[in-house]
Amino acid sequence: MSDFTIVAVSAGLGQPSSTRLLADRLTQATVDALPPGKTASVETVELRDIAHDVVNTMLTGFPSGGVSGVLEKVTGASGLIAVTPIFTTSYSGLFKSFVDILDKDSLVGKPVLLGATGGTARHSLALEYALRPLFTYLRTDTVPTGVFAATDDWAGEADSVNPLPKRIERAGRELAQRIAGGVTEAPADPYGAVPSFADMMRDL
């Protein structure tokens, strides 16, 4: 029996999809970073497979088709990996529709790793201005490192200067630490400690 359960939600529309590829890589990085002797069962949910059920659930207010089982898996998981393609500078409509049918209190305190894919790195900030605030509203325990993968990132993955593999590894390690009950290290502040107002007044 596994110690933890990890559920990855992929909102990719194609098959195969780079969104699913990123979800798989993040999941593997998380499993690899678990403490020695600890194991996790893993399940990936492709939202495209239940898209009609998600819409029906929104319209009726009651879980339809396979939605009920998916909601149980997501809310009962030890950790959640959520990955969406970026369309018109934000998460996809399918991804948001799925989030909308979640009970607003169902993910409180749950460790979550965020990922996104897009055609160009110009959309990478969507992780911070669109995706992260959404999960802040849901009061999840979102890990500091989000992972955005543009098309060129996959093409140059073997390049030693490509940051994608290391970013995936770091994000997976942060989620594994949260799942196992540890605390991830806060990212270093490039500007150093910010002085208080009182300290600045004393320096005048």
Rank of each mutant, 00 (worst) to 15 (best):
S2D: 05
S2R: 03
S2F: 04
F4D: 00
V7H: 07
L13R: 10
G14N: 14
G14D: 13
Q15I: 10
P16R: 04
T19R: 02
T19S: 03
T19Q: 05
L21S: 14
L21M: 14
L22V: 01
L22N: 05
A23W: 07
A23G: 01
A29C: 06
V31N: 06
V31R: 08
P36M: 10
K38D: 00
E43Y: 13
I50T: 12
H52W: 12
H52Q: 15
H52A: 15
D53Q: 08
D53W: 04
V55K: 10
N56F: 11
N56C: 08
T57D: 11
L59I: 14
L59G: 09
T60W: 06
F62Y: 09
P63Q: 08
T75K: 14
S78W: 07
T84F: 00
P85E: 07
F87V: 10
T89Q: 13
S90C: 08
Y91C: 06
G93L: 02
F95S: 02
F98K: 06
I101A: 03
L102Q: 03
K104M: 14
S106W: 09
V108S: 07
P111A: 01
L113E: 03
G115A: 01
G115Y: 00
A121P: 10
A121K: 12
R122S: 03
L127G: 01
E128I: 00
L131G: 08
P133F: 07
P133E: 04
L134Y: 13
L134D: 09
Y137I: 13
Y137Q: 11
Y137L: 14
Y137T: 15
D141F: 03
T142E: 05
T142A: 14
T145R: 01
V147L: 02
V147R: 01
A149V: 14
A150C: 07
T151V: 13
T151F: 10
D152Y: 09
D152F: 13
A155Q: 15
G156T: 15
D159W: 05
D159S: 10
N162S: 14
P163E: 01
I168Q: 12
I168M: 11
I168F: 05
E169L: 04
A171V: 07
A171L: 05
A171F: 06
G172W: 04
E174P: 01
I179D: 00
I179C: 02
V183M: 09
T184I: 11
T184V: 14
D189C: 12
V194Y: 13
P195F: 07
R202F: 08
